[in-house]
Design a protein around this nucleic acid. Structure first.
Lengths: 233, 233
DNA sequence: AAAAACCGTCAACCGCGTTGGCATAAGCTG
DNA sequence: CAGCTTATGCCAACGCGGTTGACGGTTTTT
């Protein structure tokens, strides 16, 4: 077997698939994303991806070194979708807020893919462009390079961390998701005020907040802190 | 096959294993944690866990309904380790900070387990006790119930989100980890100032910060915000 | 027109989680 | 101590997973 995958740019397509499909790296990634969305994290397997594309599973190894390589390609597609069409307005605070919310939203639109990829560094085009954009916002706002890097790191980590956390509960297999919610009703909401006074006192409030993301609040705090740095510097 | 797993409390042990080992739920969880630590996330399988315990893999299904159930047990053990020996000092800010750092640290000590469990609700004893403790800190600090719940949610989500994010990069299989770092040297650090001025200008600073967690900073921001709420209320 | 490269397919390997049936030892009853 | 029940460990098997090596047809190159 060939050890190397031919890079997409050098690829001269040869044979259509038995079912008549002509494959592309892009087509494979899009199909993988769709399968993740429709059938959940467990629903994406090399074999099923092959079936969905009308190709033998082993064909995919001509395009990706393995599942990890495919994962990175999915990661970059996700961030690409988040930033598609974005333009800087010049208002650093509004820009940063929008980039954060775009990423958070894009990830929540594909929770299964988000869980899979939120913590990876793909080094592909879309990821690099996004980092460049964020640093550009901070530096042209007037932050020194060390401050820009500090805020950049807090910003991107906060955003990805919340995206991953919020996506994770959306991406749970239906059974686990139901189980987690059932735990709430069956366990937390039933605790005695004697043994667990604080949970018992706040149970209704806890339930009401359970499905909201704390990301916007946390992002606001970060922006406040960055603004303070800017004024002090 | 029996549909039900006998609860640990009702269990009257009968047979030692072929290798002479007498199993316990606790022993299984501890062994699973150790295997995760030593052989990574992929290294923990039902079959290997069986071997490590000196028991047939199928025996584990007498103790857990399946891998998901085992995962929840691991989750609770992790939070239990984080909080072991903790006592409230009465200074709400110091207490909250310590609880956050304890959880973050405990998770980073078992990154593979953390990635597996950070987003699950186990409803088991240690998890409930921790939530009760956090709410207790906030309410006895003087926050109203709605404020306490708001801060509680931001606090626990922030902590778990960062724990998961920071753990994830520690937990990457060695190959992927090396690949991610290589991406940095090979890609980010080599970008031309012409096409990527902001990354090029800050590359050394980015590299220097790459391995630090932004959690303590973010936690500080959250505590500041909570203190402001307290004074305003 | 011949040679080379590409790339889809086939068959196979091994490891995975899980299950049903079976054997046996532990505990209970007397 | 004898016999019954039942918990629990073990075995064999199932279907599915990722991955690989050999093969062969098709396109591109020379």
């Amino acid at each position: 077997m060939a050890k190397k995958v031919v890079p997409e740019t050098d690829r001269r397509r040869r044979k259509p698939t038995k079912q008549g499909v002509v494959l592309t790296e892009e087509m494979i990634v899009q199909t993988a994303l769709r399968m993740l969305h429709e059938h959940g994290r467990e629903g994406l397997t090399v074999r099923r991806l092959g079936v969905a594309l009308g190709a033998d599973p082993s064909t995919l190894y001509r395009y990706f070194r393995g599942t990890d390589d495919l994962t990175l390609a999915i990661a970059d597609e996700l961030i690409g979708r988040a930033m598609r069409g974005w333009r800087a307005s010049g208002d650093w605070r509004a820009d940063l807020r929008e980039v954060g919310l775009r990423i958070h939203t894009a990830y929540l639109n594909h929770p299964e893919a988000a869980v899979l990829t939120a913590n990876r560094v793909s080094g592909r085009a879309n990821e690099i462009a996004t980092d460049e954009a964020i640093l550009g916002i901070l530096r042209s706002a007037g932050l020194s390079d060390p401050d820009a890097v500090r805020v950049y790191q807090a910003f991107i980590d906060l955003t990805l961390a919340f995206a991953a956390l919020d996506a994770a509960s959306l991406a749970l297999p239906e059974a686990a998701r139901a189980a987690d919610e059932e735990v709430w009703r069956a366990t937390y909401a039933q605790l005695s005020p004697e043994t667990h006074p604080n949970i018992a006192a706040t149970a209704p409030l806890l339930v009401a907040r359970m499905n909201d993301s704390a990301y916007p609040t946390a992002l606001g705090m970060l922006l406040d802190s960055a603004a303070a740095t800017l004024e002090a510097g």
